[in-house]
Design a protein around this nucleic acid. Structure first.
Lengths: 214, 214
DNA sequence: GATTGACCTTGAACCAGGTTAAGAACAGAG
DNA sequence: CTCTGTTCTTAACCTGGTTCAAGGTCAATC
């Protein structure tokens, strides 16, 4: 990772209260798309969300530690990736506005995380601490329902990506990426796009060149 | 698909009641590993499960129809796969004892299913009809919780498979397959193993040959 | 016991995509 | 303005995996 990307100290991450006021609209309306919330449930949720702001390039969640939170993107864009045996970074997800991300494996098992999450643009997020999330769900089953639906949908998306990985060519996956994230290519370094597509930056270059000539 | 595989008529699928008695142990103990069940909750679940038996090679759920059920494997082994543009079958999951499978996308969206599920060995299963599943979850939040946990775990597994697809060689994936499904290779046609690994049967042959020589 | 069809294997030619190495374009810091 | 690090591209070569075609094995069926 380049030198401009440095791990933010915790003082920076304690962001001003106005973030909550500004962004809680979005997360609430997202949740309401799946389930109905009582005022009390809403209030409880908002009370346990931890707002934070990150500048482009900053590390949101490091690898190697036990993950303690899920992450909800309010504004901006994050990416979640891991380093393989050769130290190459492999992007497994871009999380844009309204998405959840983080290391679900580490959150579930309390093993040190493999994935790392980083801001690709200036971003505001909510952390939802795992302990609080458990509390939230056991106290208000509506959230159990919300996350059941969310995970179910995400599972479908992941199945699609497995299919793509196995039976689409790199070029077809690039097409699909452009459709799925229309604006992303403008500000995400291409090497991360290549990584997400499971190819080398060089090969992505070839594809793009071929495209340009048509 | 070979000619021995024919779609079972519905008379055959209406299996004897003893299947329920024999197999309900397993599903209940699986669920109890994640959540505690009250007698009433158990009773309701058992009342809506639809037992069925399939012989090796029989189609459990066809592609092209709207999926109306999840599938739980009690004994035996199923595979879920889809046909790509060239008509090649791509295996996306082997479901062994205690696993859930089916076409989650179709169940959720009510679009015609893309995936097809077939018995790889003589198997007994439970269908859990989608409507009943919704009813089950809204009536007893404990099931909402159970499926939330199940989907969450499955999501982690899917993430691992995406990583494998992108950064492991075919041989490494074969290793992993053998660890994950130790006995499966004995009775599953190798072409399906190859398909699951995302390679051609020919290339799997080569890997196996190389192995044998060491 | 001969035929048929499914499955598995082999080998040769081929291709999608990786590797290596080098240069070009660009941005930020001094 | 220049130095330095980073990203993106180009090109030559390499390789893991595919394709195609053929032969071998086994089980089911007549």
């Amino acid at each position: 990772m380049n030198q401009h990307f440095s791990y933010t100290n915790s003082a920076r991450r304690d962001s001003p209260a106005y973030i909550r006021a500004v962004d809680s609209h979005l997360i609430l309306s997202n949740i309401r798309r799946q389930v109905n919330l009582e005022p009390e449930e809403e209030a409880f949720l908002l009370a346990i969300l931890v707002p934070a702001a990150f500048k482009q390039g900053e590390l949101v969640q490091p690898a190697g530690e036990v993950t303690r939170s899920m992450i909800h993107v309010n504004t901006g864009c994050l990416m979640t990736y891991y380093s393989d045996r050769d130290g190459d970074e492999k992007v497994i997800q871009f999380a844009t506005v309204g998405w959840w991300t983080g290391d679900l494996h580490s959150l579930t098992t309390h093993e040190p995380s493999v994935f790392e999450t980083r801001a690709l643009a200036d971003s505001t997020i909510f952390f939802l601490p795992g302990v609080r999330m458990d509390e939230l769900m056991s106290r208000y089953p509506v959230f159990e329902r919300y996350f059941r639906i969310t995970f179910q949908n995400s599972l479908v998306t992941h199945q699609k990506r497995i299919i793509q990985a196995y039976s689409f060519t790199a070029e077809e996956r690039y097409d699909d990426f452009q459709k799925k994230y229309p604006q992303l290519e403008q500000f995400v370094p291409l090497k991360y796009v290549a990584s997400y597509l499971g190819i080398t930056p060089e090969f992505l270059s070839k594809i793009r060149r071929k495209r340009a000539h048509k």
